[in-house]
Simulated scan of single mutants.
Amino acid sequence: MAAILSTLALTIAMAASAAPAAAAPAIEYVATINVGSGSNVEYFRIHLVQATDITAAFANMNKQSNRHPNGRIVRTGPELNIGYSWHIDPNDVNFVDVSIAACDRRPSEVERGALASGRYCPWSARVVQMTPLL
């Protein structure tokens, strides 16, 4: 009996000292977003890294929410916003109910530098696709 208890104690001690299981890898997404309608529709992409932004983007895509993205414009290249010379900072974007008019434009107007703000917040934005980045 003592040998069984000793083996059990050793097994418990070894399990307690084992390295913790690796955390599940974070999943990031690229949200493809349309702005405008009809012949005036344009598309752009946002790299989403925060769980709250990903959840909000899915809610927008599934028409459960009309919250629109509001993010800081970065003009150092497209990152994942292919076709443009800018992207939205993935660490400075939120989906919001209301934004100021100064940041509500089409992606092509952001490209031309037509915004009076360093943020982009297209009110008519609708997420049309969520693509996971692994």
Rank of each mutant, 00 (worst) to 15 (best):
N66P: 06
R67P: 08
R67H: 13
H68W: 00
P69G: 07
P69C: 10
G71F: 00
I73P: 03
I73A: 07
V74C: 07
V74L: 09
V74K: 01
R75G: 13
R75E: 13
T76V: 11
T76L: 12
T76P: 02
G77Y: 04
E79L: 11
E79N: 10
N81P: 05
N81D: 12
I82T: 10
I82F: 07
I82A: 14
I82L: 12
S85T: 10
S85A: 13
S85G: 13
W86V: 00
W86E: 01
I88L: 03
I88W: 00
D89Q: 07
D89C: 06
D89A: 13
P90Q: 14
N91P: 02
V93G: 06
N94I: 07
N94S: 12
N94F: 11
F95Y: 10
F95L: 13
V96N: 07
D97M: 00
D97I: 00
D97G: 03
V98Q: 05
S99T: 10
S99M: 02
S99V: 02
S99L: 05
I100M: 10
A101F: 06
R105G: 10
R106C: 12
R106D: 15
R106I: 13
R106F: 15
P107R: 03
P107T: 06
S108I: 11
S108T: 15
S108Y: 08
S108V: 11
